[in-house]
Design a protein around this nucleic acid. Structure first.
Lengths: 216, 216
DNA sequence: TTAAATTTGTGATATAATTAACTATGCAAT
DNA sequence: ATTGCATAGTTAATTATATCACAAATTTAA
């Protein structure tokens, strides 16, 4: 497979295009131009075409793109044709919100297992998923993996900061290949593990930085 | 003020350095080198120095940086010496999680007002903040602004997608200068308004893209 | 049929960001 | 004092990303 180093920004934009195309499709739009997409998501038409060009030719010159087709193609590119096993660790306020987050389901992500250390939470059901004790993480993930052959597993970490690294270690040892980390701490993971950090305070700080600039 | 276009990536890293320095400070570390910081947050030492160089000289050659000093400087750069009025709109699962998120308070952000449309929630208290009805948004923000003179206000949008744009419009009309949007939709706002989007599904899709690549 | 209008795909260019290399400075040991 | 070592600050080189401009393809209208 030829992989000419795709910019991450391109992937993020593809994800946004995909969401936009889904909306357009539901509205009954069948054909769309790079300019339409660009207007819809706030980038330039050239950027849209360049992003798509990394992966092939999906449009018709003089016409545009077929909405359904392009949507399908991008979903495929993003790896959304496979089913991913998503596990959530930590059912505090944030964890609960993530477990019930509609945006995940809308984009095809279903959380398969949930772990927490609070005995009061273990055994309860969130969105049809029974909460497991975190002590059973390895066991449950092994089972889950066995059920689904080679499909890679994704872990979401929503535990308090001091526990995040050990949870990451255990997830990885259990075969998880990608981690979405909400704890505001820099995790150390092997290079082959995909890691993304979501630090909500960082976003606020980028805003305050920009505001502080404008005011002076 | 000279503002030589600071890369946004630099701001994000500064925020991470700042968090790291806070931890180091609490551990009693007084002096730190660019290499130490780099190791701690997973970037190169040159990157650390380059990022800081945009804003001045904060270290001592041959020695390193004073942890407390550098921390203070970065906080100042990020605009965290001012107090920001943060309002949260939407108290669903995600909104509630954000309202109680410790990470915000740890970094100095305090949510001053919370709005929701559900009568059952209005009047309840979350983290010492009384939930207001969203119909009163303009009124409450006007009061809040008046109390605090010229300090800019920040709005966090955690309402369902269909309502996000109108909430944004109302926030802006009420004087909010920066918006952190959690609704998975592209908002259109005037160019002078600072906008950041947090789309949780996008993060998962970047992970699946990378996993899909590695597997082929 | 031809011409005009549209819109993609892409090579060339420009811009931006990162990395590397170097210089200057300060400290510690002798 | 002098030398050696560590490390910040800075300039230059490299790499990555985004923009631009145009040729190629398709449709529509005359």
């Amino acid at each position: 497979m030829k992989t000419l180093k795709i910019p991450e920004a391109t992937i993020v934009r593809l994800s946004v295009y995909s969401r936009f195309l889904g909306t357009a499709d539901r509205r009954g739009i069948t054909t769309i131009s790079s300019g339409d997409i660009a207007d819809g998501v706030g980038v330039s038409p050239a950027q849209v075409r360049k992003d798509l060009a990394y992966f092939g030719e999906f449009g018709t010159r003089g016409v545009g793109y077929n909405v359904k087709d392009l949507h399908r193609h991008i979903m495929k590119i993003l790896g959304l044709s496979a089913e991913w096993q998503v596990s959530l660790v930590g059912l505090g306020n944030l964890g609960l919100a993530l477990a019930q987050y509609k945006g995940f389901r809308e984009r095809g992500f279903k959380i398969r297992s949930i772990f927490d250390s609070d005995p009061a939470k273990v055994g309860t059901t969130v969105n049809d998923v029974v909460v497991e004790h975190i002590d059973n993480l390895e066991e449950v993930l092994a089972q889950q993996g066995a059920q689904n052959g080679a499909i890679a597993q994704i872990g979401i970490i929503a535990v308090p900061t001091p526990f995040a690294q050990s949870v990451a270690d255990r997830l990885i040892k259990s075969g998880v290949k990608a981690i979405l980390n909400f704890a505001p701490v820099v995790l150390s993971v092997p290079p082959e593990i995909e890691l993304r950090n979501v630090d909500l305070a960082v976003h606020l700080e980028v805003l305050t930085f920009n505001l502080a600039l404008h005011k002076s």
